[in-house]
């Protein structure tokens, strides 16, 4: 298991857990980042937000917030 921001571009991963304040949980889940969702990391570059694809949507996510999402890499 690792944090979302450690997933390399091109890798696919399944979200195992999301942590943080209920405010963050609510924000992250309302855009679709919930347990069991398989995402694909599109960009993971220093100084840019994470860019991932899940639920048919390209989602930009603040890097620091990516540390609060645990994933299991699948490929």
């Amino acid at each position: 298991m690792r944090n979302l921001h450690e997933v390399k571009a091109g890798q696919r991963a399944v979200i195992v857990d999301v942590q943080g304040s209920s405010r963050f949980l609510s924000r992250a889940t309302s855009i679709g980042l919930t347990r069991g969702l398989e995402i694909e990391m599109l960009h993971n570059e220093a100084r840019l937000p994470l860019l991932l694809f899940g639920r048919d949507t390209v989602i930009a996510l603040n890097r620091e917030d990516g540390q609060q999402i645990q994933v299991e890499v699948v490929a």
Binding site: F24, R27, A28, T57, V58, A60, L61, N62, D65
Partner: peptide, 13 residues
């Protein structure tokens, strides 16, 4: 302050 949250947004098609 509570509205200053990190970016979470969709890049629409």
């Amino acid at each position: 302050d509570e509205d200053r949250a990190g970016l979470i947004m969709e890049l629409p098609p």
